[in-house]
Simulated scan of single mutants.
Amino acid sequence: MTRLLILYYSSYGHIETMANAVAAGAISTGADAVVKRVPELVPHEVAAASHYKMDQSAPIAKVSELAQYDGIIVGCGTRFGAVASQMRNFWDQTGELWATAALVGKVGSVFTSSGTQHGGQESTILGFIPTLMQHGMVVAGLPYTFEGQSGVGEVKGGSPYGASTIAGDDGGRQPSLPELEGARFQGAHVARIAGKLRSTG
């Protein structure tokens, strides 16, 4: 069975919601999808004072387990046009995996969120893709066969680089139906590619 890791960081729950949608999409193809998060770096009292979502049920991932999966789908909100330091810190510890080519040939993909429509969604995804490629991973995005990313009838995230959501300036906007559908589509898309690569050895 194809195994996927949905590895995320979420301060306020938007990416957590998207991660679960990505997992649902992967599971719909028959894949085994595991949702885990990277460790929080912010002190507990600071996170609580900043109203971070503290009750996230996903277990904390370990760097050493990444090689166990056929694909890794990374979810992280944007910070000034790049991934949050929590996600960056996690991947900065993958040197041994790189040195042993442990992730070569596995599928990598990215999804994100931002406060505004032009708050760095594309730059965050595109900026993280080199990390996946340094590990020799096969990169997959959100193809235009997901028709929900087209059209201008409503405000919505999503690009050919990956699913995304717009949280709003105050973080009060939750992922919309088209954004969740994009996340599910991406999960299924990555699962199918990983399954094909796995079957060819």
Rank of each mutant, 00 (worst) to 15 (best):
Met1Ala: 11
Thr2Cys: 02
Leu4Tyr: 00
Leu5Lys: 03
Leu5His: 02
Leu7Phe: 00
Leu7Ile: 04
Tyr9Leu: 07
Tyr9Cys: 05
Ser11Met: 14
Tyr12Met: 11
His14Lys: 07
Ile15Tyr: 01
Glu16Phe: 03
Glu16Leu: 09
Ala19Gln: 04
Asn20Leu: 10
Val22Ser: 00
Ala23Met: 07
Ala23Pro: 08
Ala24Glu: 12
Gly25Pro: 06
Gly25Gln: 01
Thr29Asn: 05
Asp32Ile: 13
Val35Pro: 01
Arg37Asp: 02
Arg37Gly: 04
Val38Ala: 02
Val42Phe: 09
His44Asp: 15
Val46Gly: 13
Ala47Pro: 04
Ala49Pro: 05
Ser50Phe: 12
His51Arg: 14
Tyr52Val: 05
Lys53Pro: 03
Asp55Asn: 15
Pro59Ser: 13
Ala61Ser: 12
Val63Tyr: 08
Leu66Cys: 09
Leu66Pro: 01
Tyr69Thr: 01
Gly71Lys: 05
Gly71Met: 06
Ile72Thr: 07
Ile72Ser: 13
Ile72Arg: 12
Ile72Trp: 10
Ile73Glu: 00
Val74Pro: 09
Val74Phe: 03
Phe80Lys: 09
Ala82Leu: 10
Ala82Val: 14
Ala82Lys: 10
Gln86Lys: 07
Gln86Thr: 08
Trp91Phe: 15
Trp91His: 06
Asp92Thr: 13
Gln93Pro: 03
Gly95Trp: 11
Glu96Phe: 11
Leu97Val: 00
Thr100Cys: 05
Ala101Glu: 10
Ala102His: 08
Ala102Cys: 12
Gly105Cys: 08
Gly105Ile: 13
Lys106Tyr: 11
Gly108Thr: 01
Ser109Val: 09
Phe111Leu: 06
Thr112Arg: 04
Ser114Ala: 15
Gln117Ala: 14
Gln121Asn: 13
Glu122Cys: 12
Thr124Lys: 04
Thr124Glu: 07
Ile125Glu: 04
Ile125Trp: 02
Leu126Arg: 09
Leu126Ser: 09
Leu126Ala: 11
Ile129Phe: 10
Ile129Asn: 03
Pro130Arg: 13
Met133Ala: 13
Gly136Met: 05
Gly136Thr: 03
Val138Leu: 13
Ala140Leu: 10
Gly141Arg: 03
Tyr144Thr: 15
Tyr144Gly: 15
Thr145Met: 15
Phe146Thr: 08
Gly148Lys: 03
Gly148Asn: 09
Gly148Pro: 05
Gln149Lys: 10
Gln149Asn: 10
Ser150Lys: 12
Ser150Phe: 11
Gly151Asn: 10
Val152Arg: 13
Gly157Thr: 07
Ser159Lys: 04
Ala163Asp: 05
Ile166Trp: 01
Asp169Val: 10
Gly171Tyr: 09
Gln174Val: 08
Pro175Met: 13
Pro175Asp: 14
Ser176Arg: 12
Ser176Leu: 13
Gly182Met: 01
Gly182Trp: 02
Ala183Pro: 00
Arg184Asn: 02
Gln186Ala: 03
Gly187Trp: 01
His189Arg: 02
Val190Leu: 05
Arg192Gln: 11
Ile193Leu: 14
Ile193Ser: 07
Leu197Trp: 06
Leu197Ala: 12
Leu197Gly: 05
Ser199Gln: 14
Thr200Glu: 06
Thr200Ile: 15
Thr200Cys: 03
Thr200Arg: 06
Gly201His: 08
